[in-house]
Amino acid sequence: MTTVFLELRNLQKVFRVGLLARKVTAVRDVSLSLRRGESMGFLGPNGSGKTTSIKCILGLIRPTAGSVKLFGRDPWDIEARAGVGYLPESPYFYDWLTPREVMNYAGDLFGLDRTTRRTRTGALLERLGLGHAADRPLRGFSKGMLQRLGIAQSLLNDPELVIYDEPLSGLDPIGRKEVLDLMAELRSQGKSLFFSSHVLTDIETLCDAVTILNQGKVVAAGRLDALLDRGALEVEALFELGAGGEAAARALLAVEGSVERERTGARLRLAVPHDAVDALLQAGLAAGAKLEQLLPRRDSLEELFVRKAVRVEARGESQDSQDAAAKGQP
């Protein structure tokens, strides 16, 4: 069996819109791959092509060019989709059904036998906090409850690959925590996760790898630790200048690479590259400044995201995706 669960090669989707059938490219030249047990975050601002790509992955939309493989098969092959658990963005279900009926319907589509379906339905509804509402029509459900039902039905087939489109949207803090815990649990069970999100800290927590889209293009892709380059680490320091006053400040700012961040009275906050910390501390001691705080600062995914998104917008066309892919693609 293939170990590459999901593979996109040069995926492109062009829609024709309006009376004049104007061409709009929603996804251009997107490539990625996800192996067994890996988890990948799919990032991008609204309209960047995330949902269109996910719909191509699931056979809801036909690509204009390029290819999609699910478990090595075409996503239009139902056997390929049998191992996938999918949660659409803001999931909708027939509001006259109850959660149990939704799960039964899904179970029939997955071809589960009655015993397996019942056992898993009960366990999943309880796990997602819907046990008490299992036989209530969905009409009165909150968005968070629908989201949890969406997750429950996505796990009914015990999928090997979970594809979630914005799984945390619409959830309150407790709901978010529960879903994050569940996704971490899925990951620990060895399932592969592929999910889009606007909440970058969640992706940092849950993912091994990330693909960032903007304007339909991959602007960064690869393993998180490779993308968030540790060479770019800097350290932020807060000094009480004390008797040294202005002279101490000048001495500290004279350290190579040092940048003033904030100055409040006799306090100076500055940042230096990681390899200049020793020099900074020596300069501070010599100048009579008192160190109050020293914080290593890592480039966050959010900063990377903003930087890449802004860059591609500024350039229009960018080579970044290829650079990043070459640098860190797992």
């Binding site: 699931l58 809801l60 999918y86 659409p88 909708y92 589509l109 969406g150």
Partner: peptide
């Protein structure tokens, strides 16, 4: 949008 929860299934 009920279709989007059905057709991705097998």
């Amino acid at each position: 949008k009920t279709l989007y929860a059905i057709l991705p299934k097998p």
